[in-house]
């Protein structure tokens, strides 16, 4: 049996000192939010109620472009209506998530544009704020319903180089993997931060630095594994286009928006 040092046999009578180490908790929260999104939106089977990612990505680019280009308040009202309609089909938690982000960005924009209202640019400020809100809400809506893994399939169909798709896929996968690792390290730091840390930057440097070393190690292992399976630098992303009635509806709605854009412009 090992002999224990004396101090280890006594309970510590310890009163912690104050410290400003909110960065640990804030980092933990940010990692948690990213990881929970990743977990919720990967590995889903492309079921009946899913829209083809290519259709989604293309329509979101078109909508963003139209909203950005238009000078007609009427078009914005129509688009907003379209947004509300699409949102109404989603479940409550998702709606809340979409609105939370987009309203936050909109409020932020209002704050930025507030001074311009005082020099007589009120109407422009309102237009810009509404546009910002609409764009963010649409992107959030698409990203919140998209399966992460299928996004790269959309790029493939857009003719992106296979190499890019491989890099994108690896990045998505390792955001979750390395994110869990980083989160554990942050927890370890938190559990051992029982007093005042005089080297906060060094602790953070240690965590992010270890994360990098781990990344590099994993990348080397992965390359080894790929070589073993016959990878020679060429990568062919698989995927085929399957359009369903839902995709047709999304395409139709986007087409309608394009028509409305030109109609409201003519007036």
């Amino acid at each position: 049996m090992k002999a224990m040092p004396g101090w280890l046999l006594q309970d510590a009578r310890y009163q912690p000192r104050q410290d400003k180490d909110a960065f640990v908790d804030r980092s933990i929260l940010r990692f948690l939010s990213v990881l929970s999104k990743g977990r919720a939106r990967s590995g889903r089977i492309q079921g009946h109620g899913h829209t083809e990612p290519l259709v989604k990505v293309l329509s979101i680019i078109v909508v963003a472009l139209l909203v950005s280009l238009t000078r007609s308040p009427a078009f914005l009202v129509l688009t907003a209506t379209g947004l509300l309609v699409s949102l109404a089909f989603q479940e409550a938690r998702l709606i809340a998530r979409v609105l939370k982000t987009s309203l936050a960005v909109a409020v932020f924009t209002v704050l930025i544009l507030l001074p311009s209202v005082f020099w007589g640019r009120g109407s422009a400020a309102v237009m810009i704020t509404v546009k910002v809100f609409l764009s963010v809400a649409f992107v959030k809506l698409v990203s919140a319903t998209a399966d992460w893994a299928s996004i790269s399939g959309a790029f493939k169909r857009l003719g992106a180089p296979d190499l890019f798709i491989l890099v994108f896929d690896i990045a998505l996968k390792y955001i979750t993997l390395l994110g869990e690792f980083a989160l554990s390290m942050l927890y370890a730091l938190k559990l051992r931060s029982v007093g005042r840390n005089t080297g906060k930057t060094a602790s953070l440097g240690g965590i992010a630095g270890t994360l990098f070393l781990k990344s590099k190690e994993m990348a080397e292992d992965m390359y080894g594994a790929m070589e073993c399976r016959g990878f020679t630098g060429e990568y062919r992303a698989a995927g085929r286009l399957r359009l369903r009635w839902r995709d047709g509806m999304v395409c139709g709605a986007t087409g309608l928006l394009i028509a409305l854009f030109f109609l409201t412009r003519a007036r």
Partner: peptide, 26 residues
Amino acid sequence: DATFAKRFHQRIGFLFQNSDTQLFCP
């Protein structure tokens, strides 16, 4: 309450499953 939390974390120690994640000093 940071002081309470720190005292609590001092009183209960945790050995992580993956020791890699627990070591961050040079």
